[in-house]
Design a protein around this nucleic acid. Structure first.
Lengths: 195, 195
DNA sequence: AATATAAACGAATGTTCGTTCATTTTAAAC
DNA sequence: GTTTAAAATGAACGAACATTCGTTTATATT
């Protein structure tokens, strides 16, 4: 009996994301993907049920990886400023290490494909809610609806990061955003969020 | 001689945006679009050179309309808080009146299609820069790089609005976001931006 | 070394794609 | 009412699409 080549599935995933980022969803055909991965098109169907299944699995994989990595060293009992800053830095690190995955994720999130999936509420979300509740209780954070909090706490972060990712992507240069820039923006955000 | 039916071009544009928002870029085929618009596929080519030309024209149209409407009653000599709030409200009004156009714009902006176009710097951008320079000079705004300003001044706005647009779109209900919610978020953003 | 079994493949399926073109229809201009 | 020229069309084009299938190949197990 022959066993599945784990590396082969990885190549399919990598090339698929690369093609989608560079050419969009309609730029990803199974035959072109096969050629890029140096395999036969029919081989893809051993690893994925269909094109749609492939896309969904890619999204879920990236989403889960990003959520998990965002919580590295994080504890909802941390003081608010340290906890939020840790999240900014974690997310920043993930994006600079995986700009293609990030762009794929953004593209998927902004497309109607996202509607065909039901996004299950993750433990991630509950952990963040706890973090926010604690901070309000301790008087470290203004008491506002959670969506307002998300908008202010992460809106500036993603706007800033996306700007730099897009700049780099268009110019063909590596993604660069100095930690000092991030910190300066973060300090202003904290000013908004403190009671 | 027969003249072009302006209404026909409008229907094509409307249906195209509708299809893209509901089914994505690969959901838009010329034949399906023709059927939706009750015309022959070849008729589309009287109004647009190609599929790509159609997409580009749609984007440019929406982009210019949104930029123009964002500046309604705006003057770069306004005091900072009033000027920024006016922009929030203008943008908010446009999005709630044209949620499909907004979603189309977001989808395009986050796709690689945007790279095939060169975005010419608009008068819009220069006007905003002047507004910011004035505000800094008058001591109404912290002195930070312009990209940091954009991130903080509009990041929270778009994060909040997109959340509500997506909610409404998924649930099939109309877009609703109370002005009071918007104002509350705005006040915190102002707290961050004041010196 | 033989066997068994899933991986891997190339070719072929029927469909749909964007676009073209010869023809017909329409309405403005005279 | 006739002319004229562009709008509008349906049929047709080859290319590319996702997926299937019968066959071959590779490898773990015996």
């Amino acid at each position: 009996m022959r066993s599945k080549d784990e590396n082969k599935e990885l190549v399919i995933r990598e090339k698929a994301i690369e093609m989608i980022v560079n050419e969009g969803f309609d730029g990803l055909s199974m035959q072109k993907l096969a050629k890029e991965a140096n395999i036969s098109a029919s081989t893809i169907y051993i690893y994925f049920q269909s094109r749609e299944d492939l896309l969904n699995k890619l999204f879920i994989e990236v989403q889960e990886k990003f959520e998990k990595d965002a919580l590295k060293n994080f504890d909802p009992k941390m003081d608010f400023e340290s906890g939020l800053w840790l999240q900014w830095k974690n997310r920043y690190n993930n994006i600079s290490k995986n700009p293609l995955e990030f762009q794929f994720h953004e593209q998927f999130r902004n497309s109607p494909l996202i509607r065909h999936k039901d996004i299950k509420p993750t433990a991630f979300k509950e952990l963040m809610n706890e973090f926010v509740r604690n901070a309000v209780k301790k008087g470290e954070l203004v008491n506002i609806p959670i969506v307002h909090y998300w908008a202010i706490a992460f809106g500036p972060f993603y706007t800033l990061v996306k700007f730099h990712v897009e700049q780099a992507s268009m110019a063909g240069t590596p993604f660069t955003l100095k930690e000092q820039s991030l910190k300066q923006t973060f300090n202003l955000v904290m000013k908004a969020l403190r009671p």
